[in-house]
Amino acid sequence: MSILVNQETRVICQGITGKAGAFHTKHCLAYGTRMVGGVTPGKGGATVEGLPVFDTVIEAVRKTGANATMIYVPAAFTADAILEALDAGIEVIVAITEGVPVLDMVRVYDAIRRSQATLIGPNCPGIITAGQCKIGIMPGYIHQRGRVGVISRSGTLTYEAVWQTSNLGLGQTTCVGLGGDPIVGTSFIDLLERFQADDETEAILMIGEIGGTAEEEAAAYIRQHVTKPVAAFIAGRTAPPGKRMGHAGAIITGGKGTAEEKIAALRQAGIEVAQSPADMGAAVQRALDGRR
């Protein structure tokens, strides 16, 4: 088992004829992902990496049976691409694109929440079920089939965490990058619920960062609903207020969203918090060895 995606998942790439879309389609194929096609309006009939290109997502779904998509279209067209995938009945929509206007995401978020579909991102590394299905830009080889479910707001920091859990022999079930924007399709809580229900996942690692209150909400949820061991790390303890740390969502405003507040909330919920980013893998080990 795993969550959201596995070896059966049939994936298309929206923006497949672009540089990033073509590059990552190739790497996902090499990882073993069942890529079944791509979409670029106006380029229907072409092929990329041996895959058929369609003009619309609905056509791609009808002809390939796709049930997941990864989106690399430019930021200005991302909201449209997500809504097109939703309209076509795609179940797992992964938006890699960064720089999507926040008010576009307000409209998209509403539509996603009214549907059964899952949107991951935007501005995220994607989702990977180790050894089965990679949808996104993460380096496949650092992942190892195993016991830990990983949820993160960051990209390369997730790689760091995955690397540490692989080196400790813990391995991963599914790893999800939620995205660094203020409004993203999936929350920590959505995935905590799925990992709690997943037989194969024995422990959960949550990687948060400054800004917003998503980690605090997750802590409250864990206290009530999660019985599996949880470890966490929060990036940005040393970030000054009012300065945006790269991600549009990583900013401390009005004294809210500090790392200290988040760490306190996590600890109160009995979560093993890593002090240092070098300690993320070990924190999962401690959570597994220790309590609960």
Partner: peptide, 27 residues
Amino acid sequence: LVNGAGLAMSTMDIIKLHGGEPANFLD
């Protein structure tokens, strides 16, 4: 000098944890 915003923030954090002071965030 770091690649990725989350890792860049964490790099600042670990410098501070070891008694140093970061001069910048750079992704």
